[in-house]
Design a protein around this nucleic acid. Structure first.
Length: 216
DNA sequence: GCGACAG
DNA sequence: ATCTTGTCGC
């Protein structure tokens, strides 16, 4: 189940992709979202899972897992580096997650199977990705105000959305992972963004994984 | 062929 | 991702 080569990893993505479910209509959104991120040190990496209340944007619970990354970073194969650590952190939560917000891409991926799709399918839990920089697809600039968006298009397919989370800041790149549609994850991204560019779940996971790594 | 390339 | 101080601006 753990690939050694890039070719093996790509084959696994192609296989898991058959389990992907992207609903065309809005789904019922849960009261909490789990933000995920991984921070790397020289030998060790720490994954963090942070449960955030959607209505108040407050942190409800946190969990971390320290370990070694078992796969190198290869564009398009990020999941094989981060998924094992993230699964371990998620398992330490007292309650199974209802919706995952990942730091990276979902459908907006060369083979339509980014990190968010991978985690979502393995756990069969709704998931989506929020990335900080461009990866695949082209888009026009969304308007300058908070909440404005434009479609991310790759090979004539709308695979995600460029979303302005705060007026005057660089936009983020949102794409569905599993069991959630583009409109839902776009709306959630804006709703979950407080006073920062990065929405609270992944922002808090980034902060926690960093401090947990330096703490030892 | 060459460059670009989530974290 | 990470290595890294001060600095410009609201």
């Amino acid at each position: 189940m753990q690939p050694t080569t890039a070719a093996e990893a790509e084959a696994i993505q192609d296989s898991l992709r058959s389990r992907l479910i992207i609903p065309a209509s809005p789904v019922d959104l849960p009261p909490t979202v789990v933000g995920l991120d991984v921070t790397y040190g020289e030998q060790r990496a720490v994954a963090a899972a942070v449960v955030v209340d959607v209505a108040t944007l407050t942190v409800v619970e946190v969990a971390t897992h320290g370990g070694e990354a078992s796969f190198p970073y290869v564009p398009g194969l990020l999941a094989f580096r981060e998924v094992p650590l993230l699964l371990a952190a998620i398992e330490r939560l007292s309650t199974p997650p209802s919706l995952l917000m990942c730091d990276g891409y979902g459908l907006a991926h060369p083979r339509r199977f980014g990190l968010a799709c991978h985690l979502g399918v393995l756990l069969d839990v709704p998931s989506f990705g929020v990335a900080k920089t461009a990866f695949v697809g082209t888009s026009t600039d969304p308007g300058p105000a908070r909440g404005q968006t434009s479609d991310l298009v790759d090979a004539d397919e709308v695979v995600g959305r460029v979303v302005r989370t705060q007026t005057g800041v660089k936009p983020v790149f949102v794409s569905p992972g599993h069991r959630i549609g583009l409109d839902d994850c776009t709306d959630l991204t804006v709703r979950l963004s407080g006073h920062y560019r990065i929405p609270e779940p992944t922002r808090q996971a980034d902060i926690l994984s960093r401090s947990a790594l330096r703490a030892g």
